[in-house]
């Protein structure tokens, strides 16, 4: 298969191995626990857009994933995920075909996030939900990633980080109604020493926030 020229293909193994590093494990587990908190409220079937190597999908039980980076999808497939090589901007999925769509560290990497969210809204059932997990730009983590972006980091140079308020506005502009927020990663970069328990609501300074929003 021909691969799209993206660092997520050329650096796929490096990307995936971060999750096995000591800091990566703690950060991932903290983020996983925050998403896990909202899972009981999410209708099936589930789809993750930007599934990457399938770390979150495997841990959360998400069955199907979409991503433009086929090298990452090969790893996701080895983790048992049904994978589709494509971009939400182009890939046509069935209208009202999914109960929940996850965007975990993905919205920041979309060229037209509101247009993508509108499209996601159309593939959700009437009772469907979208789950956005992302790094608020105003947090210490957000500032670190923005700094890395400006210094030419291979992944973050493609990203645009948004504040929690901007994430809210984008979801509402796309026609979603915000339901819940969960915050985690209140430890600053370079100081992560433990897996965190998530807290309900948005806590300013949190490095990772999960927002659930309904289609209606």
């Amino acid at each position: 298969m021909q691969s799209v020229n993206t660092p997520f293909n050329t650096l796929a193994a490096d990307y995936d191995s971060w999750f096995d590093q000591p800091d990566g494990k703690m950060i991932f587990t903290s983020e996983f626990k925050a998403i896990q908190q909202v899972l009981p409220y999410l209708p099936p079937p589930w789809l993750e857009i930007g599934v990457g190597s399938g770390r979150f999908a495997q841990a959360l039980g998400i069955t199907t994933g979409l991503d433009p980076a086929d090298k990452l999808l090969e790893i996701a497939r080895s983790r048992g995920i049904l994978t589709i090589n494509g971009r939400i901007e182009d890939c046509r999925l069935p209208l009202e075909g999914f109960g929940t769509v996850f965007l975990i560290m993905t919205l920041s990497f979309l060229e037209k996030p509101v247009a993508a969210l509108r499209k996601i809204r159309r593939i959700l059932k009437s009772s469907g939900m979208v789950v956005v997990g992302d790094v608020p730009a105003e947090s210490a983590w957000g500032k670190l990633y923005i700094d890395k972006k400006h210094k030419g980091h291979p992944f973050y140079t493609m990203a645009n980080f948004y504040t929690y308020a901007e994430l809210h506005v984008m979801l509402e502009q796309a026609g979603f109604r915000i339901q819940t927020a969960v915050s985690t990663l209140r430890q600053n970069p370079g100081q992560v020493s433990t897996v965190e328990s998530p807290v309900n609501g948005y806590k300013k300074g949190a490095g990772f926030v999960v927002i659930t929003a309904s289609r209606a």
Binding site: M1, Q2, V4, P68, D70, L73, E74, R77, T83, I84, N85, G86, R87, D90, C91
Partner: peptide, 16 residues
């Protein structure tokens, strides 16, 4: 649209 290694490639033709 090619299926390779079990993964369908649905990227638009110009992206490939």
């Amino acid at each position: 649209y090619q299926i390779a290694d079990g993964i369908p490639n649905l990227l638009p033709p110009d992206m490939n």
